[in-house]
């Protein structure tokens, strides 16, 4: 009691495989159902601009006339609000995350 409370715990974990993963060498395990990258499927989009209007951070940009859909990955917070409001179900959140980027840019589709 008292002095060696930690040693048992420390010893046990010294002899166990580390719970952390060696990240850059070992990719992160994707947990199913995780809200990650926003994926846009062009096929049935009608460019109604609802997603861009509802986006709380203004990450989406939709040009109705030119039929262009764009996302700023650094602004997107993966909240899934656009997925909810999309009438044609052409948006979806994938479980993995977007690749890191260094500068703010809009990805056009």
């Amino acid at each position: 009691m008292g002095y060696f409370q930690m040693s048992r715990l420390a010893l046990k974990w010294a002899l166990t495989k580390p719970p952390t993963s060696r990240y850059p060498f070992e990719p992160r395990k994707v947990i199913p159902g995780s809200r990650g990258r926003l994926v846009f499927t062009k096929d049935n989009c009608v460019y109604c601009t609802v997603c861009a209007k509802r986006c709380p951070t203004g990450a989406l940009l939709v040009h109705r006339a030119e039929k262009k859909w764009a996302i700023d990955r650094l602004r997107c917070i993966s909240c899934g609000y656009c997925v909810e409001v999309c009438p044609k179900k052409s948006l979806e959140l994938a479980g993995d995350h977007a690749a890191p980027v260094a500068a703010r840019a809009r990805e056009f589709t």
Binding site: I31, R35, G80
Partner: peptide, 14 residues
């Protein structure tokens, strides 16, 4: 991990 599996995010559950 439990939180991410059930809500889809780690700290901001949404």
């Amino acid at each position: 991990n439990i939180i991410e599996a059930t809500t889809g995010a780690r700290v901001i559950f949404g």
